[in-house]
């Protein structure tokens, strides 16, 4: 076993270097998280491009997407973020480029009921938007 003075205080120079360089962490809840450009976050949808083909629903591994079909052109695409695994399979499966995972961080919530979102609403009489 190599025993030398250097091996006893081996980490000392490194510790001083880190001390001089300053902290490397961020105080997360008080400071924004550092996101990379390619980060896969919130699911957004371009409703105009959606054709209701349900390919995304078929491929979703977490069963987070749901298509309620009432007719050929009448359907609702419903999204359950509580199940979503943010894998981006829907983005890949969509042939029309309608669904996308944007570079936005989604925070956790304690209220599960408010999570379900209707991404595309193509029912004959959609409810007024201001409600």
């Amino acid at each position: 076993m190599g025993f030398s003075l250097r091996s006893i205080v081996y980490l000392l120079p490194q510790v001083w270097r880190v001390l001089r360089a300053g902290p490397l962490t961020v105080q997360f809840p008080f400071a924004p998280p550092e996101l990379q450009e390619g980060y896969r976050g919130q699911v957004v949808v371009d409703a105009a491009r959606c054709r209701g083909c349900s390919l995304c629903v078929r491929d979703c591994p977490a069963f987070a997407l749901e298509l309620e079909r009432e007719g050929r052109e009448e359907y609702r695409l419903i999204y359950h973020p509580d199940r979503c695994a943010y894998c981006g399979q829907c983005e890949l499966s969509c042939q029309f480029g309608a669904i996308r995972l944007s570079n936005t961080f989604t925070r956790a919530t304690a209220d599960r009921d408010t999570l379900t979102r209707v991404l595309v609403d193509r029912r004959p009489s959609p409810p007024p938007l201001d409600e």
């Binding site: 980060y39 894998c87 981006g88």
Partner: peptide
Amino acid sequence: DTIFMYAWHDREVVLDIMEDLSGGRVSHA
């Protein structure tokens, strides 16, 4: 603890690279 912090900081560099490349830090898909 110090080595723990250093190792995990260096790992953070890799995670950032992977996040940028693939979109996920651990589950890349």
